[in-house]
Structure formats: C-alpha cells, structure tokens
Design a protein around this nucleic acid. Structure first.
Length: 306
DNA sequence: AAGACGAAAGTGGTTGA
DNA sequence: TCAACAACTTTCGTCTT
C-alpha cells in the first residue's frame, strides 16, 4: 500500500475498494464495477529493496529509468530561463555561458540521424500508447522492440508511424493486452492495411514469436466494457476453457468466440446484455456472435433456463 | 418496438497449385 | 500469380418477447 492507493476513490460510489487491472490498463471499482481511471501510472521506483542497507544503496535522486525516452531518461535538462535556482537574473557573462551549455546539450542529446529518428519515434510510440490507454509495460515493450528494429536496420523506407504502430501492436500481443490492429492503426493515423503490412514485415524481420491470442483476455475486456460482474467473467472463462478443450476455437476469430461466451455468461448470470451491445464492443457482428453462440450451446449442451 | 434468428449474397485474407 | 476457400460481414425478412 502506498499513498497512491490510499487517495484513490471510486467517483461513482465513493468506495475505496479499487483493483488495478494492469492487463487492460485500468483501475476498476470492486464495488460497482466503474472504471475509475483508464491509465495507470506507476509512481514507484523500478528497483526493490529487501532491507535497509539495500535501500540506502539503491536510493538515488532522479526518475526511474525508462526505455521510452531516447537516452533512457538519464539527462538533466537546462531550461530556458535566464535565471538561477533562486530566480535571480544572470549576469551577461553567465548568460552567455548558459547559452553555450544549452547549445551543446542540444547537440549532444539528439545528434545524428539515427538518434534524432529514435527520439521522434519514441515520442510517437508514447503518443499512440496514450491514445489507446495502454499500461506502461506495453509502452516499454514497444520501445524496446523499436530499438531492436532500428538496430537491425529494418526501417529503411518505412514510415515511422507505420513501424511505431506495428511495434505497439506486437507489444500488445506479447503483453496480452487486447487491441485490434485497426485500433492501433487508427491511433497512429495510418490505414489498417499499412499497419498489417508493417506488422507482417517486422514479424519476419525480427523472427519474433508472438503467442496466439487467448480468448480469455478478450473476455475481461468485454466484461469491463459492459460493466458485468466478476462472477460473470469467471463463467465466461469457464465456457472458453470448455470450448478450447473441444477444439471449437481453432480457425475462428477469438473475438467472436469470446463475445459469444460473454453473451452466454450474461444470460446465465441474469445480467442480460443484447447481442448488439456485445457485438459493438467486440467489433464483430451480431451474426457472428449468434453463430458462435449456437455452436457453443449445442456442443456444450447448455441448458439456459430463463 | 426492440431484440433475436437465419438465409443469402458480398468482402478481404489465406492457401496451395 | 491466380483461383478456391473458409470466416466474417452486410442486408433483409420473419419470429418472439
């Protein structure tokens, strides 16, 4: 427990019983299911201390290290005020000196095409991640990937936006955060087609192993979107387990199956949502949900008593 | 009147020759 | 490179609540 946890309160019901859903990057009220905040900021240090001695050693001044800034956030920035730390005006000689320092800082920080490119690209990544309300671990992953891509000279000719979008999408999949290629592409203001092209290219180039998406992550996303209870989520998850067991998932879009499982769970738990509502959030059509729903109820011989 | 259901035709992406 | 193919969408009419 740190200060951050203590201060947070559900803006809907006032409860302090909040739970962090790191996977979706949201803070959710356990009492009423309201999504209090969709962006989790980790204010803690990146290290852990197990006793006082270690703490003494590891404590230092400065922000935690991050891969999302081109020099990993290590730099001290000389600001543009011509005054000292007490707000006093600088003498002309000092001003000239500070001016020179600033100039050299600018030059040393972002020097050369690759560095400048990297700085720009990482800013782009941050922007896209922010638009999609992604948790920081995804952004970090994407940043590391982007560095790899640069190192292996895979960008040549490709737009920064395109590569940035592809990195974000790959990072999402590795961290099991559900964002469609379309969503990511839109946030990076490129077409879905270009996003896909870049993604496929980078997959080959990095020979990256991206695990197939498990439908379970979709379920938690839908449950949050629709304000369903945790019990419903568990039921939907169980349905999915069965479906996977019976090989009903192969070849089908995971979103459709997850949506159908969510739909069934909502019926079973008396938290009925219309097919349309779920379809909208899942970005599939009602027809697809109906087809999956039919398969699932048949093969699992569910008895839905209403 | 809204939601659920299903048939039929159309679309974009993958696969295999 | 092209055609076949499965999954999914769109559209629309009908049934149910």
């Amino acid at each position: 427990m740190n200060d951050f946890d203590k201060v947070m309160r559900c803006s809907e019901c006032g409860s302090t019983d909040l739970v962090r859903d790191y996977e979706q990057g949201e803070i959710v009220c356990r009492n009423c299911g309201f999504v209090v905040s969709s962006i989790i900021v980790d204010r803690g240090p990146e290290w852990r201390a197990f006793d006082d001695e270690q703490k003494e050693k590891r404590t230092r001044v400065g922000a935690p290290l991050t891969w999302t800034i081109h020099d990993q956030g290590l730099s001290t920035i000389i600001d543009w005020h011509d005054s000292d730390a007490y707000g006093r005006k600088l003498s002309p000689m000092e001003r000239a000196r500070v001016y020179r320092l600033r100039k050299w800082q600018r030059r040393s920080k972002v020097s050369g095409a690759t560095e400048r490119n990297l700085a720009y690209a990482l800013a782009e990544l941050t922007k896209v991640a922010y638009k999609l309300s992604l948790p920081t671990n995804v952004l970090e992953t994407a940043s590391i990937m982007y560095r790899q891509i640069v190192r292996q000279r895979l960008i040549r000719g490709r737009s920064i936006q395109g590569v940035a979008a592809a990195s974000i999408y790959m990072a999402c999949r590795q961290c099991n955060v559900i964002r469609t290629l379309e969503e990511v592409s839109k946030a990076a203001s490129i077409s879905k087609k270009e996003g896909g092209r870049n993604y496929r290219f980078l997959m080959r180039g990095l020979s990256a192993k991206v695990p197939p998406l498990y439908p379970h992550s979709y379920v938690s996303k839908f449950v949050n979107q629709l304000g369903l209870s945790g019990a419903t989520e568990r039921i939907a998850s169980r349905i999915l387990d069965k479906a996977i067991e019976l090989k009903l998932t192969s070849g089908r879009g995971p979103a459709g199956i997850a949506a159908a499982a969510t739909y069934i769970a909502s019926l079973l738990m008396d938290e009925r949502r219309t097919q349309g509502e779920i379809a909208k959030g899942a970005k599939v059509t009602e027809v697809t949900i109906r087809n999956r729903y039919k398969e699932l109820t048949q093969k699992l011989n569910f008895k839905i008593n209403l």
